[in-house]
Design a protein around this nucleic acid. Structure first.
Lengths: 240, 240
DNA sequence: CGAGGTCTTGAAGACGATCAACAAACGTGG
DNA sequence: CCACGTTTGTTGATCGTCTTCAAGACCTCG
């Protein structure tokens, strides 16, 4: 079941043994399907299992007094939504389904057994949380130092690159299931400004953007605008 | 030597065995002292050891074209500067000493042995990288949704709380060894605005701030202004 | 005592927020 | 199939926060 996860891990590490595959598959207690806009975990909740996204899109978000919301990350098939919770226990963010999602549920107890028997797989799981954090650092960097237009361009570059690793894109086309309001929350800007900045990207001929469907028309131009360097996604195969 | 680290881990987990303490102490290959403004690790560098800060202040920073720099985190005694590098190998940020620092160096090879023999200690190390990421999420949340004044107030709340865990503060007084230029880079604002916002905090009677020395005069007021909730620092004792 | 870094303050201007209104798309039930 | 309400997208106008440029004060250290 967690094939997508393994495919992505294999981009980072040359060897995943059959025993490791089976252990992780066996750690899954059950699967669930949830509909769009459903909550996967709630902020402040103490959790006892983690969720691996098998298909669909999800996000993490946190809200501040005054209803100001920030979407802190986007997730696609093969991502752990809340692996942090395995060590953290109490969540500091909520996770929401952006589309209908298929999720694999893995109890913490089963992960604990993995940490006690399969150190290499443990390091790979650790790695996924660390890559997660590297993406967050990139967003933090953007939030302060990139313009609104650059942040949007960077998001598109990151999205396409990550989708490609899982084979979830269609060439230069992909789906981004966010309303412009959600896009604003993701990029840290108002709905109105998100709209303007989407318009700017279109008028520069960099993307075609109809509803949720996006086509990158000028990848080098977009990468240059965003100052996108995929190094932080850690796509090199190494022994970990 | 890594007493500060253990003290802080004990705030999160009730039990650390003598074997775990000794294993981590033994994993340290050597210690180094570096002077202020020295570089600890450089962006894009492939590392083979991690650095545990024993005393002094350090930060992580990343730079974007045009020389725009972002300080992504601040570190005090007991923090790992670059534990991410153990799984990541290639760094996506630079680390700099803000003051003279004493560092313990732990080769990746020794950490690997720990992951293969001491699963509970491994989970605690994993936990430190996850708390690290939780702090980053909080900064990301602030970067978009908090005003400049609130971000500064939040930074002070976080700094004092983290210093308290290590016993590194002096009541409501502590040292923050940042110039206002660096403070601006940390908070994602210009030097000039950082200065104004420090002035605002002073004139509201919330802090006394002379050079690097800070005294919190009105803690509840500062917490309220910042909307500071220390839950994300994960200070509850649990089995991990 | 001078020099370099740091802090402080003023003024002008840019970027993005907010307020407001309307258009387009979508889904639902009549 | 159309009417209707709701959600989403689009555009204009005004306003505020923060940036940039600039200059002067302070301070520390050789």
């Amino acid at each position: 079941m967690p094939d997508l996860l393994f495919r992505r891990l294999l981009r980072r590490d040359p060897v995943i043994t059959e025993a490791e595959r089976q252990a992780l598959a066996a750690a899954i207690s059950h699967q669930v399907t949830i509909e769009a806009d459903a909550e996967i975990v709630r902020e402040h909740q103490v959790t006892d299992s983690v969720h691996l996204l098998l298909s669909g899109w999800a996000c993490r978000s946190a809200t501040l007094g005054g209803g100001r919301r920030r979407i802190q990350s986007l997730h696609i098939g093969g991502d752990f939504i809340d692996l942090q919770g395995f060590t953290l226990k109490r969540m500091d963010y909520s996770a929401l389904a952006l589309t209908a999602c298929r999720l694999a549920v893995i109890p913490h107890a089963n992960l604990r057994v993995i940490t006690e028997t399969l150190p290499h797989l443990t390091r790979l799981l650790w790695l996924t949380t660390v890559i997660d954090a590297a993406i967050q650092r990139q967003w933090l960097l953007g939030a302060g130092q990139r313009s609104a237009l650059q942040r949007l361009a960077h998001l598109l570059c990151e999205a396409l690159t990550r989708l490609e690793v899982g084979g979830l894109n269609d060439g230069r086309c992909f789906r981004l299931p966010l309303t412009q309001g959600e896009l604003g929350d993701t990029l840290g800007m108002s709905l109105v400004h998100a709209n303007r900045v989407v318009g700017e990207l279109r008028s520069r001929g960099l993307v075609r953007w109809r509803g949720e469907q996006i086509e990158i028309l000028d990848w080098p131009g977009l990468v240059a605008l965003a100052e996108f360097d995929p190094a932080y996604l850690e796509l090199e195969q190494r022994d970990r």
